[in-house]
């Protein structure tokens, strides 16, 4: 879409780096309503299929000596289980399926988004904000249900000098409410930034077609940069899923054991 309007009259970016994030209906060209099947929906469905393929089909043989797919599934299970157990303690283990759901969704959405021409649902603030708000609301409700008013002691740092405590309480309250914001923007921002940077380099890559002189320098450099960024993005895709999950565990621990 952008190719015609930009490439023709500007000679700058051949396509716009943010165009890849446009949510558009898969069939037809109408407006996006609540239940329209869009490209975002498509990739979420592919994510679900991959999750089923890994976790259900992969483990269906129940082999004592696992196949490759089954050992990946077991690795993911063990990784998240250990994380939940280490960070939140024994009583956090019963929330393990929820945390596993978050992790496996984010990690698959991130990795599938790295495929060329794919769409990354987690690069959208709407998606990550819902994920973060789910965690925030669940953790807050859980904290009050489990501890009653004692949950408020999370904000009252009893180890600090008495005079400092109100100030610290204010800071703690602010930081508590900023949590979902940073939690969601970190994930969406990382995904968006990496994909946009790759797209920017990709726009420079065909420079050799426009101007052979500069192009001989710019084109190899940008292809090299795309490769390097892609490698970094593979790392980031996993690390962001890991960070999102471990922060969820940390917040859950705060809700279960609010006393500092």
């Amino acid at each position: 879409m952008a190719t015609e309007s930009h490439g023709a009259d500007e000679g700058g970016l051949v396509f716009h780096p943010m165009d890849q994030f446009i949510v558009k209906p898969l069939m037809g060209d109408g407006p996006v309503s609540m239940f329209t099947v869009t490209n975002s929906t498509l990739w979420m469905i592919i994510t679900v299929l991959c999750v089923i393929g890994l976790m259900v089909v992969g483990s269906s043989r129940r082999a004592i000596i696992p196949s490759r797919v089954q050992s990946i599934a077991e690795l993911a299970y063990g990784f998240i289980y250990k994380m939940v157990e280490d960070v939140t303690g024994k009583d956090g283990v019963k929330y393990f399926p929820y945390i596993m759901t978050l992790f496996i969704f984010i990690v698959f959405a991130n990795f599938l988004g790295l495929l060329p021409r794919a769409f990354t649902p987690t690069s959208h603030i709407a998606v990550t904000a819902v994920l973060a708000m789910l965690v925030f609301v669940a953790v807050t409700v859980l904290g009050f249900v489990k501890n009653g008013a004692g949950f408020l002691s999370l904000f009252w740092v009893s180890s600090a000098p008495l005079a400092l405590r109100p100030v610290l309480a204010l800071i703690e309250v602010i930081s508590y409410f900023v949590r979902p914001v940073s939690h969601s923007i970190r994930l969406a921002g990382n995904m968006m930034a990496g994909h946009a940077v790759i797209k920017v380099f990709a726009a420079f890559a065909p420079m050799v077609l426009i101007s052979t002189g500069i192009g001989l320098v710019v084109t190899p450099l940008s292809i090299l940069a795309i490769t390097a960024m892609y490698g970094l993005e593979i790392l980031v895709a996993f690390i962001q899923a890991y960070v999102f999950t471990i922060l969820t565990c940390v917040y859950l621990k705060d809700a279960l054991h609010p006393h500092h």
Binding site: S182, A196, I246
Partner: peptide
Amino acid sequence: TATLFIGIAFAEALGIFSFLVAL
């Protein structure tokens, strides 16, 4: 290691905020 990643995530989030402002 977990603490390391949490720390990196917090430090990085602020950079992401500035990136967001730029965008």
